[in-house]
Design a protein around this nucleic acid. Sequence first.
DNA 1: TATGAATGAGGTTTCATTCAT
DNA 2: TATGAATGAAACCTCATTCAT
Lengths: 232, 232, 232, 232
Amino acid sequence: MGPTRLFTNEARNLGKSARTRARLMDAAVELFARDGFEAPSVNEIARLADMANGTFYVHFRDKQDIALAVTVSIAQELVRQLDEAMADVDDAVERVAMATRRFIDLATSEADWGNAFFRAIWAFRDVRGNVITYLRADLERGARQGAFTVEVDDFLIDTFASMTMTALFGVLSGDFGGEAGSRVAELQLRMLGVPAGRAKTVAWRKLPNLRLTIATLPRDPAPRVRKPSPRA
Amino acid sequence: MGPTRLFTNEARNLGKSARTRARLMDAAVELFARDGFEAPSVNEIARLADMANGTFYVHFRDKQDIALAVTVSIAQELVRQLDEAMADVDDAVERVAMATRRFIDLATSEADWGNAFFRAIWAFRDVRGNVITYLRADLERGARQGAFTVEVDDFLIDTFASMTMTALFGVLSGDFGGEAGSRVAELQLRMLGVPAGRAKTVAWRKLPNLRLTIATLPRDPAPRVRKPSPRA
Amino acid sequence: MGPTRLFTNEARNLGKSARTRARLMDAAVELFARDGFEAPSVNEIARLADMANGTFYVHFRDKQDIALAVTVSIAQELVRQLDEAMADVDDAVERVAMATRRFIDLATSEADWGNAFFRAIWAFRDVRGNVITYLRADLERGARQGAFTVEVDDFLIDTFASMTMTALFGVLSGDFGGEAGSRVAELQLRMLGVPAGRAKTVAWRKLPNLRLTIATLPRDPAPRVRKPSPRA
Amino acid sequence: MGPTRLFTNEARNLGKSARTRARLMDAAVELFARDGFEAPSVNEIARLADMANGTFYVHFRDKQDIALAVTVSIAQELVRQLDEAMADVDDAVERVAMATRRFIDLATSEADWGNAFFRAIWAFRDVRGNVITYLRADLERGARQGAFTVEVDDFLIDTFASMTMTALFGVLSGDFGGEAGSRVAELQLRMLGVPAGRAKTVAWRKLPNLRLTIATLPRDPAPRVRKPSPRA
DNA sequence: TATGAATGAGGTTTCATTCAT
DNA sequence: TATGAATGAAACCTCATTCAT
């Protein structure tokens, strides 16, 4: 169950430069996830990626640079897949609960990415913005639908998000099990004003598992017929 | 408006060694609060405390050591004063809301301490334990009193605590104003199952301001009424 | 007002390889003139020449190599044009004064070349030799003609040359204006033994301006009168 | 005939810090003299001074810092001793010739210092100022005394100085012998307008040798009776 | 020829820590 | 206790140079 090297996989069919860059990013994810963004030295990253230290600087300006690249990629991918998975859900209560649960599922399915994401949220303000946009949309939808009885503003969003992140962290660190997603979701709905009964029902409804993936099938030769969705 | 040097103040009447140690701790708080636990070098701490770098090692094994000393002290003091201020409150709903609000008040009244505390919570697991004991007690009291309709366990406590911390952080970083305490408190009560009306009433009830102090020997011209102090 | 790219211009009608080489040399002159011979990296030179770093090594062994190529070329060109401009002057006093003045004019008319030359004189002994031959000839002519009352040897030549170079540097760095040529020339003649009056007359006599060029194939719309050019 | 370690010698009776600093400066002089100010790495300097690389940074901010320290010291010492040696000479013609000759003698007597000084003149504009002040004074004195028939201004001073420096460089590099001082001095006087005969007489008059020294006798314990001159 | 990714030695600088005073 | 100079490992980064394409 070693590291999955999602970036390397993604760059499989790209040029040499892109592949080297991807190897560095995978190495960085692994170390960032384990030790945070400060601890790993550039040399360590290069060594783990199995290349000369100088090569790092061919592809990134410095550690901050790769950290941001890695982090933004992860956040985008996470959010994109999350959004995709909820495309056909309309009810805000359902959406909010599902977002929390699936987000935790996804971020948990690839521990390094989840950890790196978790660290990134605190380290880089930009990453937050990316994610929060979606969250805000769902909360406002709920307000419009009359399902939530609280004011939706930055304060609420921050609070809400921190609950999700805390649950995620608990799962990643092994303190909590798979039910964590449902538990926070239920608490969040209660907080928002959803009646306790409905909160419980929605938050605990069975949900198919999600796995974080990165588009992998051949790119360059180009799949002639665009299938409905190239991913599971 | 400069730093308050609470440790130095506390050690005012102690031996020279204790006073030197306190100066180091005050310097450390100031730097930790501003730059986190990694960034400041031992030399910087010593320089800010206005003593030779070698002196640091007379009093602390290493940076980790002083960081722990500092944060544990802060946490203890914070919790102690919080507890003291709520000694005569019995109702769990009131206690829980008040704890959240006053905690934020206290931690906010001395920005460096608040920031250092905030950082410590993530960096040192031990500091959490200290604080959480009190929190658990109040939540369990509420469960026994039938005021809360959720299961009280580690998961709930973590979630609850992260909400408070998020509000605290928002205030410290200037994103939110003084009402943040009431806002989280209200959200927390709703989450716990307190009816929306009561949650609002309790969370927004006027409360006298608290200021973090390190009670010790008679202050400057010395207020006679204050009892000697709980510490040497 | 941008750089003149004299080498590129000179190689205009040569093979591709020669043109690439010339572009590198122009880039090198520009950087050497600005930052000296050590500071610019091979990568910088290549980047300024708008080609891949590897290409550099197709044309030059290393930085020393291009530095020499560049400065020897500059020195030759400078001296050649200087010599050409004085072909019909016979009197040593006139020649010596004119050489100094026109040398400064030329080296000044193309600031990068002037600066690179100036730097080269100190860095590469070889470059000196090239220039000094001409200088010695004129000084010896003056001695034969009885115009100079000092012994002409290496010491005198060095001293004389350093005076010219100092004036050149002053002009290039903006400390002195256009009259610098005449001033040194006058001082030099006095030093050599030319009576003060004559020294002044000769050194300040009006002189048409010279511009450093790399004569090659017909210029833009092509001045017909100029003979084909002394080079391929 | 190894290196003389003048700084170390000077700091003999000072504190430990000053002595370490002096050792670094001596090492720096040796390397700067041989390779210029760019080539030697900080590590090389520390290694030659026989201490850990980190120690360098206890005493100097960076290479520029030590280069300046070294250079300013050398220039000051050189100028001070030169000035001292000419204290009782009044005639400007004599002074000017003597200054040039003795300056070359001094700078030559301690080759490393001379070389370092020579390099410094080109690298640090500030060092020039120091030296040039004295030079200007003598030239202006000559003008006042009616001995010189040229205008004394920056241009003249630069030219004059470059002649001296060129002679110095020639001696240091072994191209010229001990008579170089007299030769330039004679040329300089001619240039300034001193009749050829007088120029020769003054410039070649026998002069006792000078040696660059640094005050060396016991400092701290303090010599009770100030002798007329503590130096040879 | 031209490319540009990759290399790794070597430079600069910081810093926790020791130790003689 | 307090000092602060000294240490050296280790971080960061640059760069001349090679080499497969």
